[in-house]
Structures are given as structure tokens and as C-alpha cells.
Design a binder for these strands. Sequence first.
DNA 1: TCGTATTTGTACGTATGTATT
DNA 2: AAATACATACGTACAAATACG
Lengths: 257, 257
Amino acid sequence: MNAKIPASVKTENKKKLPLFVRVYESIYNRLTEGVYKPGEQLPSESDLAEELEVSRGTLRQALLLLQEDGLIINHQGKGSFVLEKSLQLNPGIERLNNPLIIYANVSVDQVKVDMQFQIATDKHREQFKLEPSSLISLIEIIYYSQGTPTGLAQIFIPYEVLVENQVVLSDNDAVYEFYNQFIGQEKLFADSKVRIAYARKSTANMLHIKEGAPMIMMEEQVYQTNRQVIFQKYFMLPDYYELKLQRHNDRHFGKQV
Amino acid sequence: MNAKIPASVKTENKKKLPLFVRVYESIYNRLTEGVYKPGEQLPSESDLAEELEVSRGTLRQALLLLQEDGLIINHQGKGSFVLEKSLQLNPGIERLNNPLIIYANVSVDQVKVDMQFQIATDKHREQFKLEPSSLISLIEIIYYSQGTPTGLAQIFIPYEVLVENQVVLSDNDAVYEFYNQFIGQEKLFADSKVRIAYARKSTANMLHIKEGAPMIMMEEQVYQTNRQVIFQKYFMLPDYYELKLQRHNDRHFGKQV
DNA sequence: TCGTATTTGTACGTATGTATT
DNA sequence: AAATACATACGTACAAATACG
């Protein structure tokens, strides 16, 4: 037990967050600050709980989060251990991020945003469960690195979703900001497909590549709780992109879920 | 409350599994059997716990697993609901599976397995933390659909890992079986990269494609607890493959993990 | 080899907080 | 405003795996 460590996490400012989250953040900070170093064993749950002045159950909730982050690993009978840095994986595309920004091997320093409105096709209407003659907005974003295009995003959002979120439609920058913020929010999930696509004339022109050139294409439906809110496609030029990803084999319990 | 449902899950045969797992399986079965239908509300946690004769905490552990499976969703104050079938996503490549089999849009009905041993290169030695002059086995598997190649797997496994797992090396079929079983086991995870690769002469010959043809390439290091046990590459012909994937935005708590 | 102590995993009961109806 | 339902938190007890003498 280390006496120099602040005794209680309860006294911290963020009072609205659940206790187990604050405990998580507290231990997370110790990990990043090197109080507990890679490979080391954490104090026992009883000791840690006592030190942080929470119940063991609450502490275990926090440790569970750290496990999900891939920062620590628990072994029954042995203890909890900080994983080696080499094993602390950065989150990949299984997190709902914007791969055009995250996975570029050059720095994306410029975007060109274009926005237009279309009458929803039958396919759109079915996907988004829209009324007839609803409007769909198509946001096209071209990503550049030092003047050279690296990729393209095509984002379909029902007009009504934009209205609900009070987006200022007259300003392309505001729309871009909205999109980035919207994708980052919690409780969103997406059903995605990754394949090779070959540039059609229009995309070839936009990305300054030859017609028929292969690109990494990621196509996905994004859901908010139980409603689809976005349909989008990411086109990535193969020279600039490599999708990173963590793959796990969690529980199956004999049953292939 | 439905009186026809067997009262207790405690009396089931599988006594070794934790109670919350048996409760999970019990509710899972009710979902697949349609006792609780998509869109419906589950009984309240208190009722369900009482009916299944477990504590509410244990029931909640089971419900958590169902949530992670993407089968149900909980809303504070409202209740737990079965997700619509359309929203019940099939697990994608974020699960450590063999994409060459899972994501082929044609049925893979034949494989050709080849195995050879190499002296570990410095890169291999570093990756796997091997002694000098260790041996690495390279397993090459070509996947066919009706005689046509669809993809290729190149799997590097240290010889000592094969020995530990008592693999019969003389039989290629046994090696193939071992690999499938090994990949499917629990507590394995992988750091993966997906990009476009262009066929070199040797792979072009194996897959009956032109040199320079684009392929989806997935390259990954597979770890068991804290030791790398496999380095592998999957090459997928773009005509036959589309990688499916679920993307989430879980917790961040203000902090980008 | 065999206990014994330690450590994590599971399970229960209870109480209270918070969001929804 | 009251009732309902899920979320959080605590305390306790025991089981299971591991470590150690």
C-alpha cells in the first residue's frame, strides 16, 4: 500500500459520474503515470478497494473497464497485472471512428465539404423508415494531405435527423463539425462492410486517380439505439490507408454466438 | 409471468458453468425460441430474477452478456427490450475468426494445405521472442470454391508452439484441424491490419490471377495471454470477399481511450 | 504431496439513486 | 405526484485457482 497516493477518489470534482467510473479513471491515471508499470502486479482487490475507500464490487466494475480497454489482465488466484505496452493495443476500426482521418499514413490537413439534398429513393425510404417524398441530404467530404486527395466520404443523412439536431445547413463548416461530433457520440453502432471498390469516373475525377483504380471501400449503416440515422461510404486510396483492428475471441460457452 | 416456463434454471445439467452463464443461456434460448419476440419488452429484472430463482445481481450479469451479444437493450426506467432482428448483427471480423471461410460469398469446399519449416529470421525471433536458431513453421492454405481459388492463408507458428500443443506434424489434415481449433479457443486476441495488396508472382500463380492484381490483405499477430503465438496473413480475392464488421462507440467518459 | 494462505470469481441480500411512465 | 424499472453501491459469504511452505 502506497501512502503517498491520495486516499479517496470520492472527493474528486466530477460528482455526476458513477463511482466505479471515477475509480476507473483514477486507476487509469495511475497506469498512464507509471505508478503501476507494465508487467507489474496490481495491489489485491481488497487492498485497492480499501485504499480507494470503495467496496470490492465497485472496484471490480472499474477493473472490468480496464480489462476491456486491454490495459490489465486478471488471473484467478494470482492477481491483476498491467499488460506490457506492446500488448496494449490501440483501438481499431471496431470503434466507430472516421477511418479517413484515423488511419491515414499521412496527415490529413484539408477537407472539401459539399452538401446537396435529394428526394429519398425507395431504398433509402426502406432503410431509414421514411415517409414518401422525404428528403435525404448527401454530404461529400474529400480529404486531402498537402493538396493531394487521400479519400472520400459519402454520407447520407435524412433531412429530419439534421433538423432534430439543429444543424445550421447554410454553413458547410458547421455541417462538417456536426458530422464529426455526431459520429463520436455514445450509443451509436454500425453494421459495416469492407471490400475493394474500383473507381468510377466521378470518384476517379474527385480523387485524381485513374478510372478503375482499386480503393478500400467501407460501407456502413449507423444506428442510434434502434433507428438508422446514417448510411455512409468511405473510399480510401490504398497508398495512404491501412485499417487497424483488434480481434478477440471472447466468451462462447460452447455456443457460437 | 409465464407459468409454462420451467421454473428454475438451477436444476439444469451443466453444473460446472457459473450460474449467470446458465441464466444467460436460458434467456438466450427463450429468445431463439421466440418466447420473447423482437421488439417485445422482457419481464422486469425483479420478476425475471424471481421466476428463475436467482438474485437480481446474477440476472443482471446474464442480461449484460445478452447486451454484449447485441440481442437486447436496456433502458433505465423503461425496461429491457428484445432488439429487432434487423438490428441483431452477426458478429464480424472483430471476432477472431477465419475470414477466408466466414466471409466468402461462395461456399469454400476445398483446401490445399502445405507445410514447411524455416529457420526463424531476426524479425521472427523478435516478434515471437525466440532463441537463436529456432524453427518456424509456415502453413500455407489455399481455399477453393468448386475448383477455383478464392484466397490464401500464410500462417507462421513457432515450432515450439506446435510441440506444446502436441500437433501431429506428419499429417497435413491434422495440422489444418489443429489450426482451426487453435484459432477458435478463448482468450486469444489479435492485432490486425487490413489493406490492399498486389499479387506477387508466386501468389498470382497459386491463386490463378494476374501478377499485380489487387487483393484484400489481412495481416495479424495473434497473442495468447501475453505471448505472440501466430503471425498470419490472409489474402482474399476481391470478387469473393466482403469483410463484415460491427463498429461501436462504447464508453469514453470524456477520455479517448 | 499436502495443507494453508492469498487472490480473483461468483452469488446473494439490501438499500438507494435516477429515469420513465 | 406516485409507481415502476433499471443503475449503482455496499457488505457478506463462499467457491475456485494459485502460490508457498
